[in-house]
């Protein structure tokens, strides 16, 4: 009796694990399918670029404020912390290098992607989820309009376009914030700040790689947000859960992919 109950609970646990794994894999596949469909049907979003423009406005322009303000503070903090460490080794002149490399290589793309997931990603998921809940996507289909071409693809490209722009802005504004703390406030030499930076930041190795990262994050974050919205159960609860999942999955994906990309970039 007890034995069989134990046996049953083991079976149940195993089935539960199996179910979760297959569920994840299924969702990954469905997400990949949506990604390919978005690519295939993206002709429309370029032919009628106005559609994409609207979404660039909604995702990119609307994220400007949070990106610029955060970048400014991140840059200032980096300068403070960097000075604190570097001056112990008598190389506080290298603060420009420290701030710029940290921003251009890592914090620019990564923090932008995290903020993007929170600001634009959730908006995308909620919007698409609600469009689905209120049968707007169904209505479109019934009008012989492909929702993937009309709704998903323009948002996808808008995200992919916006992310590198936001990341570049983040890095630049962050460096300016770092400059303001390092030079007028701490009193690091103005010339040393910029010249050391220029001597050590490589356009191809650092700036281009940062840009590549942000493009990849743009694809990943936007696609996750779109898929979560498109796949959300058409209820209030379903949409709210999907929105949460967008932030959680995007953040984890960005950090994980960042590690892999960095490893590849440093190795080559």
């Amino acid at each position: 009796m007890i034995k069989s109950r134990l046996f049953n609970s083991v079976i149940r646990t195993l089935t539960g694990i199996g179910h979760r794994v297959t569920e994840r894999i299924w969702r990954l596949g469905a997400g990949a399918r949506l990604f390919f469909l978005a690519i295939i049907y993206s002709g429309e979003s370029f032919k009628r670029f106005q559609l994409t423009m609207r979404e660039v406005y909604a995702t990119g322009v609307m994220s400007l404020l949070i990106i610029i303000v955060s970048a400014f503070f991140v840059g200032m903090v980096l300068a403070l912390q960097g000075y604190n460490i570097l001056q112990k080794y008598g190389s506080s002149d290298a603060i420009g290098v420290f701030v710029s490399l940290t921003l251009v290589r890592e914090l620019g793309p990564v923090v932008t992607a995290l903020l993007f997931a929170g600001r634009a990603g959730t908006a995308i998921t909620a919007e698409i989820g609600l469009m689905k809940t209120t049968e707007q996507l169904s209505a479109m289909e019934m009008m012989a309009v492909n929702p993937i071409a009309r709704v998903i693809a323009p948002r996808f490209w808008a995200g992919v376009i916006s992310m590198p722009i936001l990341a570049a802005l983040f890095s630049m504004v962050g460096i300016l914030g770092g400059y303001l703390v390092a030079v007028p406030l701490i009193g690091v030499d103005d010339g040393a700040f910029w010249s050391q930076m220029q001597a050590n930041v490589d356009v191809r190795l650092d700036i281009m790689n940062g840009l590549i990262k942000s493009v990849v994050f743009g694809v990943v974050c936007t696609m996750i947000a779109l898929f979560q919205g498109y796949d959300a159960p058409p209820t209030a609860e379903g949409v709210s859960r999907a929105t949460t999942r967008t932030v959680v999955i995007s953040s984890l994906a960005v950090l994980g992919i960042d590690f892999v990309l960095t490893a590849f970039m440093l190795a080559s």
């Binding site: 570049a168 802005l169 840009l211």
Partner: peptide, 21 residues
């Protein structure tokens, strides 16, 4: 969107010219 893209281009140019080598 024009302002946004111009800002992005300026930031990238700034990174390349002022920050990078």
């Amino acid at each position: 969107v024009g302002i946004f893209v111009a800002l992005g281009a300026a930031a990238l140019l700034g990174l390349a010219m002022k920050v990078g080598n």
